[in-house]
Amino acid sequence: MSRIIGVLTGGGDCPGLNAVIRAVVKRATRDFGWTVVGVEDGFLGLMEREARTRPLTPRDVVGLLPKGGTILGTSNRANPFSGPDGKDQSERVARHVESLGLDALVCVGGDGTQTIAHRLYERYGVPVVGVPKTIDNDVAATDYTFGFDSARACATIAVDRLHSTAESHDRVMLLEVMGRDAGFIALHAGLAGGADVILLPEIPYDVAAVADAIRRRKARGRSFSVVVVAEGSRPLGGEKVYQAAGRLGGIAHHLAEALQAHIDLECRVTVLGHLQRGGSPTPFDRLLATRFGAAALDLVAEERFDQMVALSGNAIVAVSLEEAIGRPRRVDPQGELCRTARSLGICLGEAT
């Protein structure tokens, strides 16, 4: 039976989005003979008076696998239930889905995108299937999201490079990485790159403890240190730092200023920022995104809507969107990776 499948990419961009689009288009046309329609700029393309879509054929996805970003565009402020003017435009989205004749809408995005997809299904019966993505790796019900490995690799390379300049100048180099309220990028990159201090949103840090770790290194003849700071970190009894409304950023500068009162080494700050989102996806992210895209078509074929593909161990499984958005993933302060960091003498900012 011929079907029309819509696909959109919502939220912030990350490496691997195009690999999902490619997999959806190739499998839909090759295995099922279905038509694929791309929705432009995430849900925003369905919130406007005229829907903005484009046909997607196998020719349109040639060469997409290593390409970063998304050919469909995206928006992290397009929420149909509270539009730019504060009005609920979800009914318009549902009407567009019906008028376009979409038999399913594959929604590729993080927790915000999947929450919107779930609400559209609950309120209007929009036949949605979720595909999780985020560099933060904070979507529940999946072991990994694509985009995370590419961001982790970028941050690890930055830690590697900061080591040499820190040692050359006897400096404390602070690297601020993304992750919102989850510290996965900081923890993984810090361990992989051999950082001396790793600060996470899940463990409020004590400035004195961080300073003490740096002083102890200096006493052992290591007159430099590398500190990886997750953007959502905060000091004990303090607040998170925002560079704009709702946008985390700047905690590393605050920490550097606070440290200078405790140590006699110069502190320098590097904010990695959107470098973590850009560029070509790693082989792991290409493979995971491809598997997710292909598996999403199985859910469509079986009409298992309001579900999301996920990685469990090494298997691709399906989970309910309700489960996926119920509770965000966070670093476990007592988990194996944090225990490993402590066992190697890495300071996690905990008060002694």
Rank of each mutant, 00 (worst) to 15 (best):
G10V: 13
L191P: 03
A351H: 11
R3E: 04
F146G: 00
D31S: 14
P127F: 02
G273Y: 01
L297G: 02
A258V: 11
V172F: 04
A189N: 05
V228C: 10
E336Q: 12
S99Q: 06
R247G: 01
V126Q: 01
I21A: 01
Q307W: 02
R215H: 06
D181Y: 06
C14F: 04
I203Q: 05
M178S: 04
D88I: 11
E322I: 10
I214H: 06
A166F: 01
G237L: 13
F146T: 00
G42H: 02
A186F: 02
A140D: 06
E231V: 08
H254E: 13
L100Y: 03
T70R: 00
R277L: 01
D181C: 07
L175K: 04
Q276F: 08
T142A: 04
D206Y: 10
V20F: 08
V129T: 01
P283Y: 10
A341L: 05
S233F: 09
L321I: 14
I346A: 14
C14A: 12
V227K: 10
A117I: 08
A51V: 02
S90A: 11
P283M: 07
D264Q: 06
A209T: 07
P132Q: 05
R234I: 10
E122W: 02
R330K: 13
R216D: 07
E98A: 15
V228D: 03
A256W: 00
A219R: 15
P201I: 10
S90Y: 00
L102V: 10
Y144I: 02
R220F: 12
R216E: 13
M1S: 14
